[in-house]
Design a protein around this nucleic acid. Structure first.
Lengths: 260, 260
DNA sequence: TGTTACAACATGTCATAACAAGTATCTTAT
DNA sequence: ATAAGATACTTGTTATGACATGTTGTAACA
């Protein structure tokens, strides 16, 4: 299709106007009739555009009154388990990573099983310490099947994420994976690099990422120093929601929190 | 309004048919033309009904092909940070709680600030150990302003949740609050009740709940033994989604995991 | 000054109609 | 028998139109 449908173009236009601040939160949009005249289209076309924006929760409509920009077109329902460097940049901290170890290691039952490679296949292991404002705040250990791990061989792992290299440079389409949140005691190796006592509690987040076809690409354990990093969650409770909250509640916000 | 719009009635009817199993996941719904004939309404009315079901993610539509029932109208985007006893029941484990401590305690700067009560106001503190399959798996410490805490005085805290008492018995409308996930070392008191070594890592989840009007009702720290409890997260990655995932990804699943 | 009725304006529902674009099936040509 | 083209079916986009329902402002009346 060479051109977008009109209602989409109009929705795009209105969305841009809102994002530019031409219409502020709480402002009323022009009436349907005025928009019809302005864009020289029929009312159904305007209504589809407005419906689309309403579905995005960017506006709300009220019969007899009009359409209004919502107060908080907030990013909701997103889980910020993103790049370390991205998290830091967003929070206004300088970050860096230091490669501690890159080597081929022997098979490990748990890891090989998790990565779904043969039980005796060797793995590539990548260890890095994550530094923010010159403080070591997290340490991660990543295991990849050898086939993927070799792709990282000559890459700058101090400045690039594994995800970025595999997907960006090698076009390996990585889909989001599963995470596990738990707590662990820092062993001697981790404690050394985090600058904490052996046995100190760390907030451990394990991650296994796969290709969009389902093939496991890497398995990573990240050990966050809880003195510097925790996670905040906020949930909705809508009185509209019928029945009890026994199934759980919708997510409003999942963000990392830093204490530097 | 005495009767529903027709498109809503039709959507309701189709939704019921799907829920009853008249149309199974993957099944194609009748064409728009056939639905127009069947319900004796115009096409726009049918299209609005179908659009509504599509917005609910109950069906998907494909141009030239038709509308189909989705494979998984799964419960998604829900965060299962629910009752301890509910989590256990759902996972098929016997659970119980044991009240360890219920007393009025002196003001604490951090807690009083969090609960937004005057800095010198005393608090009610409720400590309980959470037991699953006869194993102590978590320990929680709850602080309430005295006004709310006194309501718990004669309640059976071994078998009822604080939430349940305040909302169920006293009709205090509690909205979901904020949570913080971190890791901590079990002090002597917690270690004793969890049956672990002093200093052992625990997965700490702090929670502050408020009324729907925004008044803080209780603040709770829960210490989960990571040997028995962790949390799994799965995220979506849609190829439809444009731009990078720098803002985070949508939540698919957030569930506790038990190792008993 | 306060209340009520009415008109103007605005969105919601529904109908009829036509053309565009996508998919599957049938027919014709090689 | 297979491939290409035509046709039938299906959903997507857009226009015109009418009536229902909700909101606000103004004028008239008590």
């Amino acid at each position: 299709m060479s051109t977008k449908p009109r209602y989409e173009q109009i929705a795009d236009h209105l969305r841009t106007e809102i994002e530019k601040g031409e219409f502020l939160p709480g402002d009323k949009l022009p009436s349907e009739k005025r928009l019809c005249d302005y864009f020289d289209v029929s009312r159904i076309t305007i209504r589809q555009a407005l419906k689309s924006l309403e579905t995005e929760d960017l506006i709300f409509k009220k019969q007899g009154l009009g359409a209004f920009v919502r107060e908080e077109p907030a990013k909701q329902n997103l889980v910020q388990l993103t790049d370390f460097s991205e998290d830091m940049r967003r929070a206004g901290h300088r970050s860096s990573s230091k490669l501690i170890r890159f080597k081929k290691v022997e098979a490990d039952t748990e890891i090989n099983t998790t990565l779904e490679v043969p039980p005796s296949s060797p793995l590539i292991r990548v260890d890095r310490v994550r530094i923010a404002d010159d403080i070591p705040v997290a340490f991660d250990v990543t295991w990849l099947p050898a086939s993927y791990g070799h792709l990282l061989l000559d890459e700058d792992l101090n400045n690039r994420t594994i995800y970025e290299i595999l997907e960006g440079t090698y076009s390996i389409p990585i889909s989001a994976g599963r995470y596990k949140i738990t707590a662990a005691a820092a062993d001697e190796y981790v404690a050394k690099h985090l600058g904490v006592e052996v046995g100190s509690p760390v907030l451990e987040i394990d991650r296994c990422s796969r290709t969009t076809a389902g093939k496991k690409v890497y398995f990573q354990k990240r050990y966050n120093n809880p003195k510097y990093i925790s996670y905040d969650i906020e949930l909705f409770r809508n009185d509209n929601v019928e029945g009890s909250s026994k199934d759980g509640l919708p997510l409003k916000e999942f963000t990392p929190r830093f204490y530097f």
